[in-house]
Simulated assay, not measured.
Amino acid sequence: MLIARTIMVDDIPGYQPHAPFDVTDADDLGEQGGRLCYLSWNRPNPATATNQGYLANILGQGHYSVLEHSSASFYIDGVTRNFTHELIRHRHLSFSEVSQRYVDALGFVAHPGLASVTRPARYWMDEVVEDAQDAYGTLVDNLTEQGQGRKQARQAARHVLPGGTETKILVTGNLRAWRDLLTKRLATNAQGEPLADLEFYEVAKRILVELKRVAPNTFQDFEVPA
């Protein structure tokens, strides 16, 4: 869920704004940053006179620093701790995640790769998950009865939970950081198969859909996979 994005409140002095509603604020701010570098306010080159053309040139030159001025924030739930363990490797993003030390464990989220699993394998998977959740609850109760506090009991008991335990996270990043994430997590091999973990790949697709609404010209070189 997209919950925040860049909003312009004024233009850099000298900048000639595009027609109202022709350009999103996130795309517009990137252009303003780029034009400021060269004081090219009068748009002398027809190929870069539009925001789309200007940002296409920025992308072609790899002048990504101007894309750092605009940002987007996403609230993500229904994902696993395994997913967020990979997500936080993208260090230019900012994160706020549900704490397993203070909050009771959430449910289990099946990995997309498990969709085709049939019995008896599915039966044993469900049994393991249920046993782990039962063990977690039992451990929390046992440690609490011994006098341990809420945080201490949960931080110890969570060690029996599977990596597929659900989590919720808020993620904010500038558009350059989001481009870096999408480049890596939407990459495919020669056969068109995702190189990233399938759960991450599916989340990245949804993020791209929203970013193409927020800043279509900044992400004009990305296609949303089927």
Rank of each mutant, 00 (worst) to 15 (best):
G53S: 08
A156H: 12
R213V: 08
A121V: 15
R81A: 06
V23N: 03
Q133D: 07
S71H: 11
A157F: 07
L2P: 00
L198R: 13
L181K: 02
G164T: 05
V79W: 11
L208D: 01
A135S: 14
S70G: 09
N51M: 09
I76Y: 02
D131C: 10
D197N: 15
L208G: 01
Y102Q: 05
Q61R: 13
L114A: 13
T24Y: 04
A190N: 09
L55T: 02
H85G: 06
G149W: 07
K205F: 09
R119H: 14
V66R: 01
Q155I: 12
N189E: 02
Q191Y: 12
S73Y: 06
A226C: 08
L114V: 10
A153R: 04
P112G: 07
E199V: 00
V203M: 03
P216R: 03
A49N: 12
A49D: 15
T218S: 03
G14Y: 07
E97T: 14
S40N: 15
N217V: 05
Q133I: 08
L55K: 04
G164C: 05
G173N: 00
V129Q: 12
I207P: 04
G147T: 09
A4K: 14
Q152I: 10
P162M: 00
P225M: 00
L29Q: 01
P46T: 07
G192P: 05
Q133V: 08
A110W: 11
D104Y: 15
W41E: 00
E86M: 12
D197T: 03
N42F: 10
Q148K: 12
T48H: 12
L139V: 06
E145W: 06
P44D: 03
V103A: 14
R179L: 01
G78I: 00
S94Q: 14
D180H: 13
P46F: 06
G107K: 14
L114M: 10
R206S: 12
A135W: 11
A226M: 07
I207F: 00
Y136D: 08
P44W: 07
F21I: 01
E68L: 01
A49P: 08
V109G: 05
N142W: 12
Q100H: 14
N51D: 11
G62N: 09
R176D: 01
L67A: 03
Y64N: 10
L59T: 04
K212S: 03
I3E: 06
L29I: 14
L59I: 05
T172R: 03
Q146T: 10
G149I: 04
L67G: 03
V98S: 11
I7K: 15
T172K: 01
